[in-house]
C-alpha cells in the first residue's frame, strides 16, 4: 500500500460514470421516495379512521408483505414482469386497450409494443422506482398508522362540533399531529434511498448499470469499482463522497423539517 494523497478522490471526481451515478441516485431517491409517503399517509388515515381494528390489521399486514420478502427475490419477479416481449406488464397493457370503457386510455399501448422497460435508458429508472415504491409503501403505512393512532379522539370531536368536514379533519387536525412520524419516516427514506443497490443491480442483471448506465446508483458503482475492477482505493473515495452526500441530505432535512418534526414530541 502506498500513500497517494487525494489521488483517489481526484480520479473519482474526474469520472463521468461517477457523476452519472450521483445523478441517478438523487433521481431515484426523489422519484421512488416521495410517492411512498403520498400514498402511505392517506392510506394510513383511511385505515385508522374508518376501519375496525381486525380489518385494519389484515389490510396493513397484506400491504406489509413486500417489506419482509427479500429484495433479490422481489427484483427477480419484477425482472420477469417487465420482460419486453413476453412480460406480464406489457401483456396487461395490451389487454387493457381492449377493455370497453377505459380502453381509450391505453390505446397507445399496442402501437408501443414491445416496451423495453429495462433496456431503454428513459424507462429503466421509472421501472426501478416502481419496485422501490411497491416494496416500501407498506412499511410507511404502518409507521403512519401508529402516528394517526396517537391522535386523541377528543380533538376530532371538538373539530366536528366546530363544523369541520372529513377533509378538514385530515388536513388541519390529523396531519399536523403526526409531524414527528412524517419526519422520522422521511429520514429513513432519505438514508435508505440514497443507498439503493439491490433493485437496480438485479433489474440490470449486474451489468455495468444497465443501458447507458442509467440504472447505475452510487452504491452499485461502489461495488463495481471495488469488487469487479478491484480498485479498493477509488471505491473508498466513492464511499466517503457518498457518506458526505447522505450526511448533507439528512442535514438539509433536519434543518428544514427538524424543528417542526421534533416539536410535537415533548
Amino acid at each position: 500500500m502506498q500513500f497517494v494523497g487525494l489521488q483517489n478522490y481526484i480520479t473519482a471526481l474526474d469520472d463521468p460514470w461517477f457523476w452519472k451515478s450521483l445523478y441517478n441516485t438523487l433521481w431515484l431517491a426523489i422519484v421512488s421516495g416521495v410517492p411512498q409517503h403520498i400514498l402511505a399517509i392517506p392510506t394510513a388515515y383511511i385505515l385508522v379512521a374508518t376501519l375496525r381494528p381486525m380489518l385494519r390489521h389484515i389490510i396493513s399486514a397484506t400491504l406489509f408483505i413486500p417489506f419482509i420478502t427479500s429484495t433479490v427475490a422481489v427484483s427477480m419477479i419484477f425482472y420477469s414482469i417487465y420482460s419486453a416481449n413476453t412480460g406480464i406488464l406489457n401483456q396487461i397493457l395490451v389487454g387493457l386497450a381492449q377493455v370497453p370503457i377505459i380502453g381509450w386510455l391505453f390505446s397507445w399501448a399496442p402501437d408501443a409494443m414491445p416496451i423495453q422497460w429495462l433496456t431503454r435508458s428513459d424507462l429503466l429508472k421509472p421501472a426501478i422506482s416502481a419496485v422501490v415504491i411497491w416494496k416500501y409503501t407498506g412499511f410507511n403505512i404502518l409507521v403512519y398508522s401508529a402516528g394517526f393512532m396517537t391522535v386523541p379522539n377528543q380533538l376530532y370531536d371538538a373539530a366536528k362540533v366546530d363544523g369541520c368536514n372529513r377533509f378538514q379533519l385530515f388536513w388541519h387536525i390529523a396531519l399536523p399531529m403526526i409531524r414527528p412520524f412524517i419526519f422520522f419516516a422521511l429520514t429513513l427514506t432519505i438514508i435508505g434511498n440514497l443507498q439503493l443497490f439491490e433493485e437496480p443491480f438485479i433489474l440490470t442483471t449486474g451489468d455495468s448499470g444497465g443501458i447507458a448506465q442509467s440504472g447505475l446508483t452510487t452504491t452499485y458503482y461502489l461495488y463495481l469499482v471495488g469488487w469487479e475492477w478491484l480498485e479498493m482505493g477509488s471505491a473508498s473515495a466513492i464511499s466517503w463522497i457518498l457518506f458526505l452526500l447522505i450526511a448533507l441530505a439528512t442535514a438539509i432535512h433536519f434543518f428544514f423539517n427538524g424543528k417542526q418534526g421534533m416539536e410535537g414530541h415533548r
Binding site: L39, T43, I46, I65, V74, F78, I81, W134, G138
Partner: peptide
C-alpha cells in the same frame, strides 16, 4: 375508499401470485 384499498391489495399481492 374500498376501491382504493382493493387496488392497493391487488397490486401488492399480484407479483406473489404470479
Amino acid at each position: 375508499k374500498l376501491n382504493f384499498l382493493a387496488f392497493g391489495i391487488v397490486i401488492t399481492i399480484f407479483p406473489f401470485v404470479w
